[in-house]
Amino acid sequence: MQIKGKWTPPLFQLKQVTKYYRISLSSTITVLKEVSIHVDKGSLITIIGPSGAGKSTLLSLLNRLEDADGGEIYFQEKEIKLWDVLELRRQVGLVFQIPVMLPGTVKDNLLYGPGLRGQTPATSAADIIKMVGLEEKILERNSSNLSGGQKQRVALARTIANGSRILLLDEITSSLDHESAMSIENLIINLNKEHGYTCLWVTHDRLQAQRVSPYSWSLHDGKIELIANNKEE
């Protein structure tokens, strides 16, 4: 990325990354084949591709819930395995496709991440919950009784409360109605544009990809390519 002539190193750099899963004693499936990409700080990248293409797997390599089987991944110019994995995961937050609540109230969920390190969130839980479009009083509710849409917002708020400035978003609007999806979409755009969050956003919704970014990464058969999100398609 070129800023006033000064070269900024990419946040993530993947060089010929390969990932396979063992599905039985004798066979494996290759999910990612020599994928080479880079992610600049402050960018918003959409990732599209058919179900089973390896989109979630790609995200899980970036916060090391999974490790690659071949190739190299650098985070801030340092080989990703050389990072303290707990610190890496705090910086690189992952919001899962199916929102899963941790036991307790909504507030417990927001405080969980910082609490692991004996801290409290830098921004108050009330401010964060309002940021994702929920009312403050929801904080005291039991997280297991929320609607799917509310859970998804809480999951996003939980990652923000953890202090992550890099967000890996795995089809986070797919379980929401159109209105909620649009409001989450605008929230992500706002986090990116106004607050400098870097977002890698997996979506199955081509129109959504078009709305938020001029380009997408398209995953297919383990290969990745950059495609333009032109409206004609």
């Binding site: 819930l65 995961r89 937050g93 899962f96 941790l102 036991p103 969980y112 692991l116 953890n162």
Partner: peptide
């Protein structure tokens, strides 16, 4: 799934 959420938030 809960364990993965906890890990992804930086839990040991």
């Amino acid at each position: 799934d809960q364990i993965k959420v906890a890990l992804s938030l930086g839990a040991t």
